[in-house]
Design a binder for these strands. Structure first.
Lengths: 354, 354
DNA sequence: CTGAAAGCGCTTACAG
DNA sequence: CTGAAAGCGCTTACAG
């Protein structure tokens, strides 16, 4: 194995010299160009071996204008679990298509720091941009102000409101809220409350709206009063449930904005001596790995976050290729629906023992 | 706001031309060199504004040999949750010190793919390397084969076995296993079983060893028989517990390798009519956000993974600066202990109702 | 304090 | 199929 240690960088020029050919020819070999004799190719490859030559990606990028790097803007905050899982999906997918991910974290949402972030990524000449982070309040206002077409590269927004011309890959959270509520209705429940995630979040807002819609459709608008706001975490499940019971002592079902909060709800119900689902049916969202093992096992809605991240990445690579007039890699050859859907997963917390 | 759209890249040369100075002077201005008249500086800065000039990080890197990029090799696998949380910690910390993270995923552990991975990162001239991924079986054998000093940049290994000269930041999982077991012993339990993570994992092995050590110290070596292997996930907790009860029907305590598996154990105990902790004391590891809300609330051991990731990053930046003879950024100015420690968090699953 | 030159390591046209 | 030249956009010495 060659020894390209700290000594001195081996360059294409060195290889060319040793092989007795031009730099251009060496370049052709490392880029798998067809216009090279087998003889020449082999000779060059041997010299590459011998010298332990590794082309500098940096130099290549500078001269070719292509970086095979995708910039990821994340804003983790409390959503770190989801972000984390999503990261893994993105890394894998990027890798398969030959891209690396350059990850930067947005620490605040001022237009200034957004601008700085974008400039930084532009400076590094990323081929495309993934905007991955929860949409908090008006954090995406800049998307309106900005002329996205002025970005020198395509961008895909993940799990946030669709805006203007920016591509977006997101779950249909309105539908999720509606479906969860409809399930509770189908069980004959009439007093259905909701504990939502933080209302500054787009995702939480939509789930609330879906819940309300289902209630209206069922002719139970009064239930819309049975509402409490949480923060996605287990700790707000219990207080949320108590609040709901204050508002409606006869509450018979609750749709909880996340499985983690639902854990808190189950815990509190147990403490209060409420039987689940006999007295209170509970359904969450996420279908966390834990949910099947809660007491009782929790009904929920699957949400395949890694799949969303992967889909976003494939879409982005499509856009990158489109702009450059290059063919698509096989993985993103066909267009996919940018809207992701949840699916009901029913367990004891709504169905009871089977 | 300047309009640097897809048109044409604005370069340092353009600025120099407009300002009527040399490129070198513009370079000085953007690098905050002191040897520039205020007058010149202001003039240049204005031209930069007007043209919307953004220096190319790529060009800078190529000519300066410094990329301010840290390569992260991850191998997610089932440990995605932990990896995800760790990612966020790393991204944040890197950002604060002016580095970006370039993330690559290792898909298999053959020496070849490890070599390819390292070459790739070297090609991209990352300033340093983080090896972040669970140590599976002999996956780190290459660390022995490789002469780490031949790497052109420093590397820090996260949460894996200490090897040779490579810096390592990791939890003391042996101590964790011992402490958890000692806690159960202190409650007067005499038949203490263990359900471990996959034994191909270094972390799991150490926790098992710590448990055994504590049993030996307590003069209860026979308990070492009460053992089952799981996979960290909730689904293996129940089967693990049943296995333990086969081996020792009078089992009175169990140390579970992860809180997620412990959830499965609690679920199964509930099903079997075993009271926790009266009949069976249960303690996990991780102190997951869910643990305080399990039924009953789970005793555990905190494990601050983001903190570990951040510490690893700080250490790496220290090493980078050392090699280059540069001063340390404030954040990593002082050396830190590379060994991280768990802490007991006691709840009802071992202590009972207070 | 400022500038002209050379160079970082590759790729892109353009010839032959 | 192969090569000599120019260029990607900066920075690093070296002069003045």
């Amino acid at each position: 194995m060659a020894n390209n240690s700290a000594d001195k960088r081996v360059t294409l020029t060195d290889v060319a010299k040793l092989a007795g050919v031009s730099k251009q020819t060496v370049s052709r070999v490392i880029n798998d160009s067809e216009h090279v004799t087998d003889e020449t190719r082999i000779k060059v490859q041997q010299c590459i071996e011998v010298l332990g030559f590794r082309p500098s990606a940096l130099a290549r990028q500078l001269s070719s204008g292509r970086s095979y790097t995708i910039g990821v803007v994340s804003c983790g905050g409390l959503g770190y679990l989801v972000s984390g899982v999503a990261y893994v999906g993105m890394v894998r997918q990027a890798d398969k298509m030959g891209y690396a991910l350059l990850i930067k974290e947005l620490t605040d949402f001022s237009p200034g720091s957004v601008r700085t972030m974008l400039d930084y990524l532009i400076e590094r000449q990323v081929d495309g941009l993934i905007w991955a982070g929860p949409e908090m309040g008006d954090s995406h206002v800049w998307l309106n102000d900005f002329d996205l077409d002025s970005l020198p590269m395509p961008m895909v927004v993940v799990n946030a409101r669709q805006r203007g011309k920016a591509d977006t890959v997101a779950f249909d959270n309105f539908e999720a809220g509606r479906m969860a509520t409809q399930h509770l209705l189908s069980l004959g429940r009439k007093r259905i409350g909701h504990i939502s995630g933080p209302m500054s979040r787009w995702v939480a807002q939509l789930r609330v709206a879906g819940w309300q819609k289902a209630l209206d459709e069922a002719g139970l608008p009064e239930c819309k009063e049975y509402y409490a706001e949480g923060d996605w975490e287990p700790g707000t499940g219990g207080p949320g449930l108590r609040r709901l019971l204050e508002l409606c002592p006869k509450l018979d079902a609750v749709f909880v904005g996340s499985d983690r909060m639902a854990l808190g709800v189950l815990h509190e119900a147990h403490r209060l001596g409420l039987r689940v689902p006999e007295d209170l049916a509970v359904i969450g969202v996420d279908d966390a790995p834990e949910s099947a093992f809660m007491i009782p096992p929790l009904s929920s809605m699957t949400q395949d976050t890694p799949a969303m991240a992967e889909r976003a990445l494939r879409l982005l690579v499509r856009r990158i290729c489109e702009r450059r007039g290059e063919p698509y890699p096989a993985l993103c050859a066909q267009a996919e629906d940018p809207v992701m859907h949840h699916q009901l997963v029913l367990r004891e917390s709504t169905l009871g023992k089977s």
